[in-house]
Nucleic acid binder design. Sequence first.
DNA 1: ACATCATGTCTGAAATACCGGACAAACTAA
DNA 2: TTAGTTTGTCCGGTATTTCAGACATGATGT
Lengths: 264, 264
Amino acid sequence: MSDGATDPIEAGAQPQGGERRRGIDRVIMLLEALLKHRAPVRVGDLAKMIGAPRSTTYEIVNSLLEAEMLENVGSEGYVYFGRAMHLFGWAYSHHNAHYRRILETLDKMAAETGETVQLCGLRGNKYVVLDCRDSPGPFRISSDVGVEVPIPWTASGRLLVGHMNEAELKRFIPAGDYKLPDGRIIAPQEFFADVERARAQGFSETSALADRFTWCMAAPIHDGHGAINRTLCFVLPIDTPEPRRNQLLDLLRERARGLSLTGG
Amino acid sequence: MSDGATDPIEAGAQPQGGERRRGIDRVIMLLEALLKHRAPVRVGDLAKMIGAPRSTTYEIVNSLLEAEMLENVGSEGYVYFGRAMHLFGWAYSHHNAHYRRILETLDKMAAETGETVQLCGLRGNKYVVLDCRDSPGPFRISSDVGVEVPIPWTASGRLLVGHMNEAELKRFIPAGDYKLPDGRIIAPQEFFADVERARAQGFSETSALADRFTWCMAAPIHDGHGAINRTLCFVLPIDTPEPRRNQLLDLLRERARGLSLTGG
DNA sequence: ACATCATGTCTGAAATACCGGACAAACTAA
DNA sequence: TTAGTTTGTCCGGTATTTCAGACATGATGT
């Protein structure tokens, strides 16, 4: 429980013959593979992606199709997530009042500002967007919900690891994650300093980090035990003028504070 | 494929002795049972709900917990849907551009009018809310996403079965579904007439039907093959003045038309 | 035309995942 | 206290499911 942080699903890997596996595990690998792929996949390819025999994969896929957990897309044998998944996911995000309040705030902020707003968190040792409201304008630069991104690439990441000291951070974050998509490398020491600063000032900003066009600002949502599980975050065009940025940052911090739980 | 419409999951039923079942099927039953129950459940109770042995249930639940498809809630052994479900569901609802446009419209309509807006569809022979934006006011009367409701109770239902003739309707809708929560019974003939009228006028309205406080209006979203898979729907306080209702109905119909696909 | 490759379905056989039942521990009630 | 219930874990046997491979069919490419 407390050790195996990141190898529940050995999706790709080599087809290391004669390993019989449970149907349940196949299902889990299959769904995780679909999530990573982010587009409908043919059954044959799915079999390769999860390293399962074709016949097995067909049977599993057919079961999941019948349950509407998967759905046929197009007419050429592609499958993707189905309606039931949507209902399950919705049930998850609305069963607790706190999460509901967070989503309402997301809606309100998007409506008031017209900017892209995100709710972010960790998944294993990566950063993920948990939900977002895209700006209606031509700037559609936000990353997709559920896609895993290295922590050092993001403003929210700097807040979400705020409870760790330097040694823990070194252990937690894979060495390769300091390398940005454009090839630049973030010096770990600099990153640690960023984390420290983010903790001290209660917010974090990055500009032109993961891509050249965005200015990100993040503020923490505390969970009532002092920890930061979630952050609220604006993704702005990088040429947003400073007065507006400051105004948005104030709003962001205020709303995130409002969503934080104080008592135990 | 074309016959077995509505018995994929035999959840409750009697514990009819030595029936061995696949893990996958157990998983499906389990998730469906959680969805119906709409609240965290203890493992022991889950076992009863899906008619599985306790030992099996524990094993399955533990697998799903590890995959984050389920999540522990509280500290007394309750489980409910987990984060992975949210990500899967999000991937489902955003993978196709049409659905994305629908959700954006939902957002816009909610923001513009301040009323409760829903996206509805069928699931088997029941009506379900697929997504909604709740009105911020004190009127919080919308039903939960994913809860199955008899078709005759709803305005949207009258549109969603518009392609069926009377004989098909009689076969499709369970006799008990004509009985309203307060005990009143809708005469089937009257319902058939409603369906016909809804088809003719291109929208449907109900007042004080499923409950005494709401006025519902629904408009169809056509899928490009002439069928109606989805409806857009306002849920209003029943005392909403008529001029405002008419104005909202116009907006609803216009937006639904805008979302309908015309070509093949 | 031929060759090559992918799809979807079946089958037999063997490995194993599920089941029933037992057990200790924790909790409740009287 | 005792008696009754529930929880979480473990174990051995066997009914079942996964697996490998074959097959017909339909694409695709040269």
